[in-house]
Nucleic acid binder design. Structure first.
Length: 323
DNA sequence: GTACTGAACTCCGCGGAACA
DNA sequence: TGTTCCGCGGAGTTCAGTAC
């Protein structure tokens, strides 16, 4: 039997009459695959979570998912920041939103050489143990998947992610997927652009958000991200393809993404807000289908996002009914 | 003007890796 | 083996927008 977050004396006395049966499968999952217990509030939540966690975690062998936080610390590194718009912009959580890097104008910039030297020094510190004569390479040279590290389970959305173009720096309120890793001899790309864009689409979907809302309070730490169950991208799966293509059209809206567009072969992009809503609703519907959720379960997930408009929820359900 | 809510900022402590 | 540094996580504080 289980019941979470009970502080009332009477409720604790009547524990058995108000608690629910915590499924043994969920118990095994929490104990063997996760770093903390999955907290849930009843039968349907348990059923949904068990369906979602049938897929490999991002820190499992199936994925090659390498995260990093704190590229530039807003307090410790503030001596590097300026407001004269020279060099690379410093992105913080508040400057991006789901599928967009133009949500707000950056407040700080870092001179290109100052910033890249700083990051190359840190990277050199990481790879020097391999004793290889290799020039350090840094993440800001490439497109990278980012997400807000500071959030809340009761916010409009908890996981807010996009892909940022090269030549931008990140404040510590943004965590990111390393686009390049050092394997001991050379730098390799652990995930393709297609996989990265697909993951971005999954991150911004309601089912994945639903998981995090049952696990975090305010800090979306790296361990919670790495314990997300995400299916491996399958280019032959039409649902995966839909999420990848829609995400591409939502993210790559400026010339900063021309190289990425050419690389993944998606030239179209969408800036009209109504069209963007439709594409996002389709991504949510496809994600729910991938996780094998039924209409009742998707409706329940949507009902827990109380600040999201009813119109967008209905759009998502309509798209789901078409699959 | 005040209260409330959502969201971001800042500070501090912990733990592991590196190093003397 | 002790010390230092740095990445990371947690929590309190502050700010901004909105409703009344």
């Amino acid at each position: 039997m289980a019941k979470f977050h009970q502080i009332d004396d009477q409720n604790l006395t009547d524990f058995r009459s108000t608690a629910f049966e915590y499924k043994s499968d969920l118990f095994d999952l929490s104990l063997n695959r996760l770093s903390s217990f999955l907290e849930c509030d009843g039968e349907i939540t348990q059923k949904i979570l068990l369906k979602l966690f049938k897929f490999p975690l991002l820190d499992s062998e199936q994925w090659n998912f390498h995260t990093q936080s704190s590229e530039f610390h807003m307090t410790k590194n503030q001596n590097l920041f300026h407001t004269s718009k020279i060099g690379f912009p410093l992105y913080k959580g508040e400057t991006m939103e789901q599928f967009t890097h133009t949500f707000a104008t950056p407040a700080y910039w870092i001179e290109e050489k100052v910033g890249t030297d700083f990051l190359k020094n840190k990277e050199f510190g990481r790879i020097k143990k391999y004793k290889q004569n290799v020039e350090p390479r840094i993440a800001s040279d490439d497109y990278r998947l980012v997400w807000r590290a500071l959030t809340n389970f009761s916010n409009r959305r908890t996981l807010i992610s996009t892909i940022l173009p090269p030549n931008v720096f990140l404040g510590h309120s943004l965590n990111f997927l390393k686009p390049l890793i050092f394997d001991g001899k050379k730098y390799i790309k652990p995930l393709s652009y297609e996989e990265t864009i697909f993951v971005c689409g999954m991150f911004n979907s309601f089912p994945v958000d639903f998981i995090l809302r049952h696990r975090i309070l305010t800090n979306l730490t790296l361990s919670f991200i790495k314990e997300l169950p995400i299916p491996k991208f399958d280019k032959n799966n039409s649902l995966h393809q839909k999420i990848f293509k829609n995400s591409s059209m939502l993210i790559c809206t400026t010339d900063d993404y021309s190289k990425l567009r050419a690389d993944v072969g998606i030239s179209k992009f969408v800036t009209d807000s109504n069209e963007r809503n439709t594409l996002e609703a389709q991504i949510n519907a496809c994600a729910a289908k991938i996780y094998d959720l039924n209409t009742e379960e998707l409706e329940y997930i949507l009902s827990t996002f109380t600040i999201i408009s009813q119109e967008f929820k209905e759009l998502t359900l309509n798209e789901f009914s078409l699959l």
